[in-house]
Design a protein around this nucleic acid. Structure first.
Lengths: 127, 127
DNA sequence: CCGGTCCTTCACGACTTTTTCACCGGTGCA
DNA sequence: TGCACCGGTGAAAAAGTCGTGAAGGACCGG
């Protein structure tokens, strides 16, 4: 279908409503104030929702350059983004870390501590 | 750790869906979180699915070095991988040990313990 | 010039993964 | 029965990765 640069209509994921054209994100009745980087990062991850996206690609897509060794920009911004998302929707975790692989966007209900850290319930798309 | 020349698309084996490009494994509605070694080990074995692959070759392929005498890394990681697979799909056994030869990947229904251990039912080999 | 926001980089601590070691049970053989 | 060989696995040690507060500079509207 149509691609990244051209989403005019809002993307809806779980409690989030993202309007790429306007740089707007609504989460659970609140409006998130994100900076450009934070916003682009979110969009990039959401477009790969469910899959792992590496730092290299995130840097390429959001920053428009190659990730240099020792560069922590991506991590720092993931951290900022997480903080804002968590503040808006405390009961969900959206961004998951896969050490050495990258990050994965996937809404996950945050309740009882996961029985085993290696398997996640894969919160279903409602039916 | 990207190698387009290999597989960009997910490998499907039994209940498993392995996406080499993303380092992701889905098993029966769950997302398996594997470390790099665990993941590479799984991929290596799956690529030889049905056949026996020796420790030496596994070490060469996954660790990129020769297996040194007394080195138990492969065994340790097979153990870890088994634990995660078993937790995700308790009713299957995927990794079989062939003493002195190596390991063999093959999905096997885990029902009544086969009395005659020397012959296996040659389980659901399908697609 | 000022105050505020954004971005990058640095540093340190926390968390994970990987390696290595040790002990155990099972097996086959004399 | 004693022993050597194999492989399973818990745990400690070593190495690597990530989370994040904070400092410093660029930019901007007033």
């Amino acid at each position: 279908m149509s691609d990244r640069s051209d989403h005019a209509e809002p993307i809806r994921v779980d409690d989030l409503e993202i309007t790429p054209g306007e740089g707007l994100v609504r989460a659970g009745g609140q409006v998130l104030t994100l900076s450009v980087r934070e916003f682009q990062l979110l969009v990039a991850m959401v477009e790969h929702a469910g899959g792992i996206i590496g730092r290299e690609e995130l840097c390429r897509v959001v920053w428009g350059r190659e990730l240099r060794p020792g560069d922590r920009s991506v991590d720092v911004y993931v951290s900022k983004l997480r903080a804002k998302l968590e503040h808006a929707v405390p009961e969900r975790r959206y961004i998951h870390t896969h050490p050495s692989f990258g990050y994965r966007f996937q809404p996950e209900e945050l309740l009882a501590p996961n029985v085993d850290a290696s398997v996640e319930p894969l919160p279903r798309s409602e039916s």
